[in-house]
Computed example of a mutant assay.
Amino acid sequence: MKGIDYDIIEYFQYENKQQLNKELSLNQIGRIEYIPNERWIKQTINLKNCIRLRDLMLWIEKGLVLISLGQILRLCQNLLNKVIELQQNQLDHCYLTSNRIWLKLTQNSKLLTIAHVDIEYQIVFTGFQCPIFENQSNKQSASTSIIQIMIQIIKVFETNFHQFRYIQYLNQQIFHILYQQKDLYQAQNCIRQLYQIYKSHKNYNDYCTEFQEINEYRKQMEYGISKLFSTILHCFNCHEGFFKEDMILGLISIIGESIKQNTLKKLEEIDYQKMCENQEIFWNNKIKSLLTDNTLIIIRNQFQQIEEITRLEISQENEQMMIDQINREITKSYILKYFFNSIWIWTPNYQECKQQLIQNLMPKLKYLTKERVDLHIKEMAFQFINELI
């Protein structure tokens, strides 16, 4: 999106490095770093020329982006083609979601804006071999996942573009048929046929005229919205991409309404610096509280077992010191970093995501806690011996 220019960092686990190299060779995006002695990669992606599919779906849903029915059909076709390309190379993606699909703009493509533009892009998948930790979804073939994702895209488009009077005529012949698709190759052939129906439909010219009328007034706000994004993001370069992403997600509805009302007044009244700071404080406090509560339970359980055979106790001061030390270590863990790949990991099932985060962190948390408790006991024992001497 024009005006959105910052890096996001995503972490993904993998099982087979040789296999991953093959998968990534067909899905080149951003900068990849292998983490030594860990089966994790760090992927840095700049958003200037890359669009996450799930973000694009939200932008369409909230009216930030104007996209034609023809573009939706081509997008679905390109997604299907990407999965077929994987199959032709004896590859699959068993953990595919709209969070892990990107539109990578080609070098000569225009940047996406609030006014209609026919962008040129490549479809790229990320997160190969990495389980969906936030909800423990079962593995399934990309050919199954992509049909489900295609239907999600169509539903978003259909719901948002009821404003077009002539879309209802196209709906009966296009959307209804796409909803029934189950097979990858049948869906591919179906979309080819539907694109021809769309272009030759008796209401096609009326639809294009209506579309262009809506696009004209959006062009008047194009520069203002792009400049607004640039100004907002420039204000907090020190903040991580996750917090910027979360803040932008919160603004999308307001921006969509501002476009419809043809005014930036509401957007100009917002204190963006404060908004981003509040988002960062919110998430830091949530994670700190989550880790502290669970670390405290483990520490007290371990000392309760020790107290049954000894008289060793732990003071509140030492207890808090141990919690702080353990939490500092656990924040370095890659499974925790994974949960901050994207705000979409947390949305919309925050409670389930929180439970899965703790479940995945628990082995590491228990290990670190046992280490700290054992060290504390040794320190107490040395102190006791010194006192006797």
Rank of each mutant, 00 (worst) to 15 (best):
D5M: 05
I9W: 01
N16I: 03
K17Q: 15
K17Y: 09
E23F: 02
I32K: 06
E38F: 04
N49I: 01
L56V: 07
I60S: 04
L66A: 14
N78H: 13
E85G: 01
N99C: 02
L105K: 03
T113G: 12
H116C: 01
E120C: 08
P131N: 10
P131C: 12
S141H: 10
S145H: 13
V156G: 00
Q168E: 09
Q173F: 06
I177P: 00
Y179L: 10
N189M: 08
K199N: 09
K199H: 11
N205V: 14
E210I: 08
E213C: 03
M221N: 07
L228I: 01
N237M: 01
F243K: 11
E257L: 13
K260D: 10
N262P: 00
N262Q: 15
D271T: 12
M275R: 15
W283L: 13
L296H: 11
I299T: 02
I306P: 01
R311G: 14
R311V: 04
L312T: 11
S315F: 02
M322P: 04
Q325Y: 10
N327T: 01
T331A: 08
N341I: 11
W344L: 06
P348R: 07
K364E: 05
T369S: 11
K370W: 00
D374P: 02
K378Q: 07
I385V: 14
